[in-house]
Amino acid sequence: MNTLYLAKRVVIAFLSLFIVSSLVFGMTMALPGSAAEIILGTQQTEESVQQVREEMGLNRPLHVRYLDFVVGTFTLDWGQSLVSDQPVVDLIAPRLARTLQLALFAMLLSIVIAIPLGVIAAADRDTIVDTLITSVSYVGVSIPSFVSASLLLLFLTTPPLDLFPTGGFVPFSEGFVPWLRHLILPAVSLNVIIFAYVLRQTRSSMIETLESDYIRTARLKGLTERSVLAKHALRNGLLPTVTVLAINFGWMMGSVVIVEEIFSYPGMGRLIVQAISERDLPVIQAGILVPTAAFIFANLLADIVYTYLDPRIQLGEQ
């Protein structure tokens, strides 16, 4: 049954990808100001614009370009950048790798810090610790990443606390410490909202679990509160957090546009912003599509993890 369910989910994931690629194609068609005009700048004449459009393949019929794009989505071939003449996939691959490093590092931060804090808040419900943790999370969910990023820059990269570089990226191969130093501020600002959100979700689902009957039974058996929490409540209480982490991954894939721009981090987000300002159509299209695809497959992964973690769920049987 699970195999059938998973097969269905995989089909839906690919169908979504197809529809999203059509959506992206349709909307970018309306893009004002053509790349040809921007490249030529003040030099343009009617003829030269036509010639450049011809070279770029922009004069082909719409349906041909649409088919090209949708097929390209599945074969990773989105043609050439209009500005740099490189294949789009070559532009995207290294930047996607850097963005994923950033996003996964941010995710790791929220897993190792937010989940434990959420569990503590739930276990010590309505104490001063809980109130403190939940108030912090209230502030967290309300800070847009461009605000947290700007504030981090203001306080941690200027004297007296000149602790981090203001931006850029150093590959892991050039040493762990420089790599980490460049990653921390963007990861933290990417993370503030998600951190708070994971914390709240963990807290509320743990509270729900701790009030359930089987936990009461475990307590009545005379188990210590610690072992009730560790052996019985955690596994079920953390299930919804898996889904939340997948949703948050999608949120991050959008927020990198902002965070990477602020920290001059050479990833997907910066690529998109730059492509928009240059009207580099193929790069814009693929640049929006690739993070969306990453999100679609992250959701699929979360579904799979979910079914394995919770044997009670037989999703295929509805």
Partner: peptide, 12 residues
């Protein structure tokens, strides 16, 4: 909903 919120906004 599968398009990340901010990217959808940017796209529009």
């Amino acid at each position: 909903m599968s398009v990340p919120v901010l990217l959808l906004g940017v796209l529009i």
